[in-house]
């Protein structure tokens, strides 16, 4: 949808732009053209300036500082020492870091497909319109995203509670052993459940907006061609949604590898499972906050950022080839 409209705009605007330019080139007054060119080239940057300033001050500068920090080692005894890439070499063989990464890769591989399929299904059902109080459902699905994560952690902490949680009480009432949602083995699934609850609605809204933008004549054309609801969803809606799906996948990869809030908050009720290196971001946080290993924390953060860029990049590259060919 996005690409389609861009193409349409591109054609029309491109045509409109091209002709004055060509007449300009033929014009016998070069000074005017020069002035115009200059003005044209500076104006967009003036508009961008507020963003660029904030971007430079709050993103580029800290990144540069972190990079600078990461090649030193501050010690309680002996002070600061330049160590070159030593911190990075240490990350490369740090089992705590890679343990966190593998936790998250497993987490992402199971949670992201479930969450996105759920979001897609909900969006298509909402879009179909065979539903009363559609606005209410749409809002209901989206609300978990608006719940502050501290509140969410309290709610889920109660639900998962091993002694007084509703599931434990129910199990005990039925004479069954209470389920342990907070053990070593079940924690990733319990977290995945929370994240799915939080972000399904968010992704659904993205899909729903994209579905709304599909021209209704396509539906009519499909109906005339004899396509049923399933065929329409599978062969018309799904391909049209592809850019939106791609976007949400990239968001999810990014969000998964940076997972921090949910496990950090669950740490208070399950500190024995969620240790200080449960996810790479939690690791970096504890390295700098309590361990006073700021330099190493900076190196860990950089490697994590690099990893996210590589995985997201590889994914985009792989799907562009596949997706591009099919369209």
């Amino acid at each position: 949808m996005i690409e389609a409209s861009a193409a349409v705009n591109g054609n029309y605007n491109g045509g409109a732009d091209a002709s004055p330019d060509r007449t300009m080139a033929a014009s016998p007054k070069p000074p005017l053209r020069k002035r115009r060119r200059f003005r044209v080239s500076i104006v967009p940057y003036l508009f961008l300036a507020p963003f660029l300033l904030v971007f430079a001050a709050f993103l580029v500068a800290p990144l540069v500082y972190a990079l600078y920090t990461s090649v030193f080692r501050d010690m309680l005894v002996g002070g600061r020492r330049f160590v070159g890439f030593a911190n990075y070499l240490r990350v490369a063989v740090d089992s705590d870091f890679w343990g966190g990464v593998s936790n998250l890769l497993f987490f992402g591989a199971t949670q992201v497909p479930i969450m996105l399929s759920l979001a897609l299904t909900l969006a298509i059902v909402l879009d179909r319109g065979a539903l009363h109080a559609r606005g209410l459902f749409r809002l209901g699905f989206f609300i978990p995203y608006a719940v502050p994560s501290v509140v969410a952690a309290l709610v889920w902490g109660y639900i998962y509670g091993p002694a007084f949680g509703p599931f434990s009480q129910l199990a005990r009432g039925l004479g069954l052993p209470p389920p342990d949602f907070l053990s070593d083995r079940t924690m990733l699934f319990s977290l995945a459940n929370i994240v799915t609850w939080e972000f399904t609605g968010y992704n659904m809204v993205i899909y729903y907006a994209a579905l709304k933008a599909i021209p209704s004549d396509l539906r009519e054309a499909a109906a005339i061609d004899g396509a049923g609801a399933w065929q329409y969803a599978l062969f018309v809606q799904l391909p049209m949604l592809w850019p939106a799906i791609l976007l949400t996948i990239i968001f999810s990869i990014n969000g998964t590898l940076q997972l921090f809030n949910e496990p950090y908050l669950m740490r208070s009720i399950a500190p024995a499972v969620i240790n200080t290196h449960y996810t790479p971001n939690i690791y970096a946080y504890f390295l700098s906050a309590a361990n006073q290993q700021y330099n190493y924390a900076a190196a860990v953060s950089f490697v994590l950022g690099l990893l996210i860029a590589v995985i997201a990049g590889a994914f985009t590259w792989a799907t562009r080839r596949g997706g591009g060919a099919s369209r």
Binding site: L76, S183, D184, P271, A272, N275, A290, N291, Q292
Partner: peptide, 22 residues
Amino acid sequence: SPFQDYVNQTMGDKLGAAAAGN
């Protein structure tokens, strides 16, 4: 120790995991 918050944290991590059966 001269780095007590690190000690407390690491101790909690390791003994907590052991007490939980790990």
